[in-house]
Design a protein around this nucleic acid. Structure first.
Lengths: 108, 108
DNA sequence: AAATTATATCGTAATATTGCAATATAGATT
DNA sequence: AATCTATATTGCAATATTACGATATAATTT
């Protein structure tokens, strides 16, 4: 098979999984870290930063944009990308719930 | 190709990406949510909960265990799984840095 | 010790992801 | 309008993931 059975899971589970999957690649983590440091970027900045082709970087940026991790604004010739905080707040909330649950009781 | 160029990224980037990738599947999100509610589980509990085969559930549990999201303790016949808080604290820290960075300045 | 219960692993098919060269698109500059 | 610059898309090959049936392993019960 190879197809994830999304229809069996809740919207919340699918959405959260999609965002985490998008962040689950070292190049995309590196892009986010670049944006933490530089606040914004254009595709070419990342092409200069990472040892991947322009086509590959463009693809990674699209994936991050698709799940709302970054947003892009057209600026003349190029597209200015920056981080979208909302998604990270969602993830942090989920992680907080996990941590709260775990610290309450020891493991089996 | 299809092979991630891990060697070009830092250990931190690869490790974080691996954990996020492991959490980036709705079934594995569902397993974590089950553990939030029930504190612990055996493989069979999840098999009863999700519409996936025993073999598939076992595989998902192994992936979560491999990156340290859960830990398993042998208890007689079965294996008791529970959440490992450390990993989530790492992720939360990363998310916190992102949020802090973003709230400081507006997007382009 | 045979049967039962619980989980893991193997093998395999279907699908998804990663990466890149080549090409397309679109605004800016000359 | 031709050229340049920046990014996106297409097509493809290599690899990874997802899922499951069948089988293996290992402790428990009868």
């Amino acid at each position: 098979m190879g197809i994830t059975k999304s229809e069996h899971f809740t919207d919340h589970q699918n959405e959260l999984a999609n965002v985490l999957k998008a962040l689950g690649h070292p190049a995309r983590v590196a892009i986010v870290e670049y944006l933490i440091q530089h606040k914004q970027c254009i595709c070419g900045d990342i092409v200069n930063e990472l040892p991947l082709s322009q086509a590959t970087i463009s693809q990674h940026l699209r994936e991050l944009k698709q799940v709302g991790v970054i947003q892009g604004n057209i600026e003349g010739n190029s597209i200015c990308y920056c981080l979208n905080p909302q998604v990270f707040e969602q993830i942090t909330q989920f992680m907080g719930i996990v941590i709260e649950s775990v610290t309450k009781n020891k493991c089996c």
